[in-house]
Amino acid sequence: MTDSRTEDIPAPDPDHLIDFRGVEFIRNGRTLVGPVDWQVELDERWVIIGPNGAGKTTLVRMAAAEAFPTRGIAFLLGEQIGRTDMRDLRAMIGISSSAMGNRIPPNEQVGDLVISAGYAVLGRWLEEYDEMDRDQAVEILEQVGAIHLVDRTWGTLSEGEKKRVLIARAMMTNPELLILDEPGAGMDLGGREDLVAYLGDLALNPDAPAVVMITHHVEEIPYGFTHAMLLDEGQIVAQGLIDDVLTSENISRAFHQPISVEKVGERYFARRIRRGGAHRK
């Protein structure tokens, strides 16, 4: 017998890596995110911005196949969440986040940490890695400016160095979708600018995966990003083409502050323009 509920669900668009339709995430009777309609196509690079508690991390956890939506329909990589093996989806999604970093053993060597992503493990045990894996890990570490860390252990790295290594690990599996949760957090100015330059080059690479990045700061948005979403209290303030979304009016609404946004070259900058306004409670 055919499930009539399945018949009522339109087929996913093959160009959409993320396709959220009326998605909500509810815990203890409180709606943390939603309802959200959101589509990410193969060649798009998205940035998600909002104040603390806006629901950014919860949204991308659903996009990373790490959390199930409470309501709505969610397709990832053409598969409907709840009707497919989440482990298969996670294998095609690269993610860099502080939560992952907290699970890494302090004595894990950086080279092994990056390589082990291809084996879907966190922390080397008895695996034997071949030369092709090592060469790929070295190439990726070099791309993110972290090749000098290859023989270091995780526990000896600074926060900025850890961010670079996590991005390298996320790229190791050649993912179809790359999710970056505050990749610039903890970096000094020079390190942040180096990372922004790398991510900008990645965004302009037509062979690179689709990218979704969370940040609190418009200054951390790399050149080459195409779309933006502003979140506040789990609700979408604005989404669409990045220049249409990152306006002074929209940013002021999302952060509950009078903020001026300027674009200089291909980068964005924001500042508060006068006293007044109330920070979101």
Score class of each variant (00 low, 15 high):
G72A: 10
L246G: 08
S252N: 12
E7R: 14
G34N: 10
T70N: 05
E44I: 00
A254Y: 05
E219P: 00
E193M: 14
P69L: 09
A91L: 07
M92K: 14
G155F: 12
S260Y: 07
I81W: 03
I147W: 07
V138W: 08
G184Q: 02
T156A: 12
W38Y: 15
Y223G: 13
Q235D: 05
W38K: 08
V264D: 12
A65E: 05
G265K: 06
T57S: 15
T247F: 09
F269C: 02
A168K: 04
L230C: 08
E182I: 05
G191I: 00
D151E: 15
K56F: 09
P14Q: 06
I236K: 00
T226N: 03
A208G: 11
E161Y: 08
N250P: 08
G277V: 06
P10R: 10
L32I: 15
V150Y: 13
L141F: 06
G53N: 10
R152P: 05
E139N: 14
A11S: 15
A64L: 11
E66H: 12
R45F: 04
G82K: 05
L246N: 08
L76G: 01
R21T: 13
A185E: 14
H256V: 04
D135T: 12
A168P: 07
I93T: 07
S4K: 12
I259Y: 04
D133T: 01
M1P: 12
Y223Q: 14
P35K: 08
L122S: 01
A170K: 02
D188G: 10
Y129M: 07
M187K: 04
G123L: 10
V237I: 15
G186S: 08
D243A: 13
S248Q: 07
G184M: 09
A117M: 12
G55M: 11
F75R: 03
L177Y: 01
G186W: 06
G29Q: 14
L17M: 13
S116W: 01
T173W: 03
F75D: 02
G50E: 07
V211R: 00
F68P: 03
